[in-house]
Design a protein around this nucleic acid. Structure first.
Lengths: 258, 258
DNA sequence: GCTAGTTTTCTTACATGTATAAAAACTTGG
DNA sequence: CCAAGTTTTTATACATGTAAGAAAACTAGC
């Protein structure tokens, strides 16, 4: 089929003019993933969809992993960035949560997560917000990076584990291993787990990301200096508005345009 | 080659007598991994090593993933379990750290981690210890399980990310993507990260597992109720002997036999 | 010994990611 | 128009996990 190779194939350029482009590849890949799931995205399928050959793709993309990373970049670039609270601690929590929400929507992420500890360039915005908020909470830049790393480990782990659990559930409920293991626990050797017994399943199904994140952040940041610890269990609405809030808002507004 | 199929092939059993066994498969697989790395462990190679065919393996093992899980089980079963401190908080930290140390030694783990949120049966001992310690710290069993899950996410994430980083380093230092991304950060959009700049690399190389774990546990457990925090930094020897300590020790001793 | 049933093994085949090398489609300089 | 150089595409090939089904090697009943 006659597709435009690319609006401007750079006229004076030597060599065979390209019929494919990274952008088109990513677009097509995304369409396949959106329509039929990431499992259907194979290099051959993608090539066929573009009236090309598998190996032609490899001149635009190093390997499939890079393709998935580009997919993530594309997704992150087009995602709306949330408005973050002013209080630095809440901002940190919100940024981390938003990052996690974003990544949860990317089914191809799991295969990329095991391959790169950082994310697509567009996702770095979230990293920046977390680090910045941590500094505003009183950490040094170095401590803030370490704090971010801990949060990232926690987040990445949650994503990987939950994605795996979902995949396993999808693969028509095979009662493998794990179920068998938990069926016959030795109460003498593992009393706590045996006592939990069948409830383990429902407990691990809970979404505890937010609670765990809060705990982690509690431990990472210097102690709260809010008024009365016992009474402010849910004072997440009272803005303390301590510092340079305006600066940050300006910055955010400028970048929020997508 | 004439190998014993298995000492006792259950004499009265109908059907073709097996030449392979799970145990032998796991043993051979482990040898290959130990000698030449997990990359060399393929179903074909494993079969050849046992004078068999790839598909014969599939009657003893559901798929390669289960094989890797069995490898982990084998490893965990033969690993020495550490003696844990008495203070429940320190015990929790020690158990989690020991678990992580164990898993760090399993190069095949990364491919399994994305597939199962729990581990081999033998590794459940660590889970039990963490949950038990958390309960001793004052959490309800439900809270303890949630706490364990948070710790597991953190631990799994760290393992996955670090393994990926190591793999990337091994694949002859290709300056892909990530490096390029961090080379040209926009200081206006990402001031914190840009300011870190080249130091990001060294900071992410640090091993901060212990610190992050401590922070997480700090946040997960109810506040410390030790007498004078500054003075008893290392009172891990003064047994508080609150509860059934003897029971636990007995239990531990019994199982410590490798 | 023969047949039926059962369990394990083997043969063949397919889809996948991707390495290697050849071919194609251009540009530029003669 | 032709030769050399450059970039993209194609053809072919290989290793991998594993599905499907045939074959082999045994036991029990006749």
């Amino acid at each position: 089929m006659g597709r435009m190779p690319t609006p401007s194939p750079r006229p004076g350029r030597p060599g065979r003019p390209p019929r494919l482009s990274r952008a088109e590849i990513v677009t097509t890949a995304r369409r396949i993933v959106d329509e039929e799931g990431v499992a259907k995205l194979t290099m051959r399928r993608l090539a066929r969809e573009m009236d090309s050959t598998p190996m032609a793709l490899y001149h635009h993309v190093r390997d499939k992993e890079e393709l998935l990373l580009l997919l993530l970049e594309d997704f992150a670039a087009h995602a709306a960035r949330p408005r973050l609270p002013d209080d630095p601690r809440e901002r940190l929590l919100a940024a981390a949560t938003a990052m996690r929400d974003l990544l949860t929507q990317c089914p191809w992420l799991v295969e990329v997560l095991t391959a790169d500890d950082l994310l697509a360039p567009s996702a770095l915005w979230y990293v920046e917000q977390v680090v910045d908020a941590a500094v505003d909470c009183g950490l040094t830049p170095e401590q803030a990076v370490r704090a971010y790393r801990s949060i990232w480990y926690y987040t990445a782990g949650e994503l990987v584990v939950r994605a795996a659990a979902a995949r396993r559930r999808a693969a028509d409920a095979r009662p493998t291993y794990r179920e068998r293991v938990f069926a016959d626990l030795d109460p003498a050797a593992l009393p706590r787990l045996a006592a939990l017994g069948p409830r383990w399943g429902e407990l691990t199904a809970e979404d505890t990301y937010a609670a765990g994140l809060r705990a982690l952040v509690d431990g990472l940041l210097p102690p709260h200096r809010t008024g009365a610890p016992p009474t402010d269990m849910d004072d997440r609405h009272d803005r303390q508005d301590r510092e340079d809030r305006r600066d940050r808002e300006d910055r955010q507004d400028r970048e929020a345009g997508e």
